[in-house]
Design a binder for these strands. Structure first.
Length: 423
RNA sequence: GGAGAGGUGGCAGAGCGGUUGAAUGCGGCGGUCUUGAAAACCGUUGUCCGUGCAAGCGGACCGGGGGUUCGAAUCCCCCCCUCUCCGCCA
């Protein structure tokens, strides 16, 4: 959520930058300022009335104490009218504040200057690529067929137990999952991220804190009986560790990592390209989350990008990094780099990581602040990235490394899997 | 699931209708003393909003929401959460 003072002080910049999201936000921004003007005027008037009532109440108390009941009664009559007036003013103030908040919740984050203009993923800007696309020869198998051939992922069994999008991993497939999770966690902790295990269910306040609510309500599984949500990503619980927290400047950088399963309803997004592991309702992901000083957050973003690069290089997967264009950028993000691995049998790029700087957008909702040297409070910057999401990494590993003998496991992973070949 | 207790400032813990934003202790910060430190002593120490160049002034906040009252941390109602005991249980 953007803050009103920020919009007020940077109106032109905000307006221009938001236009990259292919919508004219100027009317909403103007309305924000109008509502805020109204809010402030009402607040001033309400406070004046309340001050008057407080003063009278004190006088009444004094009169009762000194036995001057008659004078007290006279004043009481006076307060009745004031009370009516302040009540209706307070109600109007509340309505104005609600309307303002409602409006602010609909305005997305301001894209960073480097975000390219564009409508969809085709307009994303490739900023880096690495590795050679493998030559697989005749009739390479897509990963869902390889999974069946080696009996390592059972989609039908998942259908039976739960439904589509909930695969069962078996044997070397299950072991590969565990290996990847441990490999990622080890690399992340070696890079200074604190390993954590957050809950997999979150409450409403946490959903609002990171921006899943209210805009993505339908994307999360909701347990109505207890009003809890299954996490769509570890970003939600981990970032919410810092909700309502005031850090000290010297606490920076705050670096956390967590492995969690992720649950997404993916309502209405099923189609031709979602076979196999490409899109699931439940999948595993290791996440990195950082809280940073505003002056350091873009350097931190670069560090995270470098870190994720290292992971994919260790896995010997050809990949590219794209900078998301305005039309593809998430609601809460100021700048996002997506990592896409080459899936050799599908002949497609598959997104395996999304690394973003949210600047103060989440921190404002989270009330996540820090004290500077002069003891002044400022909103912190939040960042996160996948390091990494498993299913599409597995898809690419299976497809790219298929040989006549079996599926070759990259060297870096072998000490984790305990085998070099899936056969 | 059953029964009970409780949610107050960074923490501990008073207050239970009227200068109480809140005693006291601990912690934090500043100072005196000291070669330095500790101890001791003195002072200071919440958040948000409005207003103001500023000093300041005003308002709100004692889990959340509503109510009673001229006046609520204190009384009433609803909700949430935590703890203890019993039951069940990885």
């Amino acid at each position: 959520m953007l803050s009103v003072p920020f919009i007020r002080e940077n109106f032109e910049r905000v307006k221009t930058a938001l236009a990259k999201r292919n919508k004219d936000f100027e009317p909403m921004l103007r309305q924000v300022l109008e509502l805020d003007d109204k809010r402030r005027a009402l607040k001033t008037e309400t406070d004046r009335l309340l001050a008057e009532m407080n003063r009278l109440s004190k006088e009444i108390g004094q009169f009762y104490k000194s036995g001057e009941a008659k004078k007290a009664e006279t004043l009481k009559a006076k307060t009745a009218a004031l009370k009516e007036q302040s009540k209706s003013l307070a109600a109007e103030l509340q309505n104005t504040e609600d309307a303002l908040r409602e409006l602010l919740l609909q305005i997305p984050n301001v894209p960073h200057p480097s975000v390219p203009a564009g409508r969809n993923e085709e307009d994303n800007e490739t900023v880096f690529s690495w590795g050679e696309k493998p030559e697989l020869g005749e009739n390479p198998l897509p990963h869902w067929e390889l999974a069946k051939k080696y009996d390592i992922i059972d989609f039908e069994l998942g259908n039976k137990i739960t439904g589509a999008g909930f695969p069962v991993y078996k044997g070397k497939g299950a072991r590969l999952q565990r290996a990847l999770i441990n490999f990622f966690l080890d690399r992340n902790t070696a890079a200074g991220y604190l390993e954590t295990q957050p809950p997999h269910l979150i409450n409403e306040a946490s959903g609002y804190g990171t921006g899943q609510l209210p805009d993505k309500e339908g994307q999360m599984y909701h347990i109505e009986k207890d009003n809890l949500y299954l996490i769509p990503t570890a970003e939600v619980p981990v970032t919410n560790f810092y909700r309502d927290v005031i850090l000290d400047e010297k606490d920076f950088p705050v670096k956390n990592t967590a492995y969690t399963p992720c649950f997404r309803r993916e309502a209405g997004s099923w189609g031709a390209h979602v076979r196999g592991l490409n899109r699931l309702h439940q999948f595993d992901k290791v996440e990195i989350v950082r809280i940073e000083h505003p002056e350091r957050s873009y350097a931190a973003l670069d560090e995270m990008v470098e870190h994720v690069k290292g992971l994919l290089q260790a896995l010997e997967l050809p990949f590219r990094i794209v900078r998301l264009c305005g039309g593809d950028l998430g609601f809460t993000s100021a700048l996002t780099y997506d990592f896409e691995v080459w899936s050799a049998a599908q002949k497609r790029w598959l997104e395996v990581s999304s690394v973003s700087n949210f600047e103060t957008f989440q921190a404002n909702r989270l009330k996540l602040r820090f004290r500077d040297k002069d003891n002044r409070k400022h909103l912190a910057h939040t960042l996160n990235g996948s390091a990494l999401a498993l299913p599409r990494v597995v898809a690419a590993l299976l497809e790219n490394n298929q040989t006549a003998e079996g599926i070759r496991i990259p060297e870096a992973l072998q000490s984790y899997t305990g085998f070099a070949l899936i056969d």
